[in-house]
Amino acid sequence: MNEMHPDSDAGTDDHADPTVDFQTLEEAAVEYPLDVERPHDVSDDYTLTELLAVTAAHEIGNGETAFIGVGMSLISGVLAKHTRAPDCQIVTESGYVGSRPPGVVQSISDSVLGVDALVATDQMQIFMDNQRGLFDVGIIGAGQIDKYGNTNSTAVIGDGTYDHPKVRLPGSGGSNDIMTSCGRTVVMMRQKRRAFTTELDYMTAPGYLDGPGDREAAGFTGGGPNAVITDMGVFRFDENTKEMYLSQTHPGVDVDDVREAVQWDLDVASEVTTTPEPTRGEVAMLRAIDPTDIVLRGSDYVYEVDFEEWTEQVHDHWQQLMELTE
């Protein structure tokens, strides 16, 4: 394992991590395209969302193919490509490979994905390649997760039924396919007790199913969930029991608070580490990717300005990032 990887010391004697053999550049070797003073120093004004984006970016190895969707996961992928994993390539399910989008990707066929793309193909081809095992790491989101990393993004059924659920969620999208066949999968979620559940309302995407050996018995080629990143910390899966355990907490988060936000009796690494804080370079890069805070702060002010001003802003931000990355 790369010694610069944030979890390098998370594997303790009581938890064997599933094999993670990807490597990223060491921070000191990262060449930031932006002009930032002391880029490798820790940032003193990062937000929680920025910490999550950076933490997810560190899960993408240099030279890997990263299968990702819109929003936060794409921002993490673009960040990885501009920082510790300059040779990674982004794969999106609508058919683009290798894109360097010069801004926030709003939808899965957003034409910014056409920028610098190496491949513009179709969805069938992308998922054939995925099932063939050609993609190294996927990033997905979910509404619920259980201790074996099985996820629900279809419906919160509550007192209702599948046909009349309490909350209809968007559905699998590519999450089932990625969890089934991608090399390894990173799940990004909000940490809530009702979401970290002992009983999923619906299993959309397969983690380790009911435990050790189940994925192999089902014939899955992908490695399954490898990390779960939440607003409180990062979870890994024990190689033997396949159960999720708390590997690291974000700065200022107490292990007991995390236990409270999980329905089952949470397993915890004997030495829980603290998530490395983003560097000044990483934060500056993130803000260049999302200058109007659409993803980073959930802002939509950019759409409230008049149409003319909106187009000027979008155009200027694209120009800025395209020039930086030339």
Binding site: F127, N176, M203, L209, A218, G219
Partner: peptide
């Protein structure tokens, strides 16, 4: 396909 196998997608 290998996708969807062993999940609730075929169940419903």
């Amino acid at each position: 396909t290998r996708s969807m196998t062993a999940t609730d997608i075929p169940t419903h």
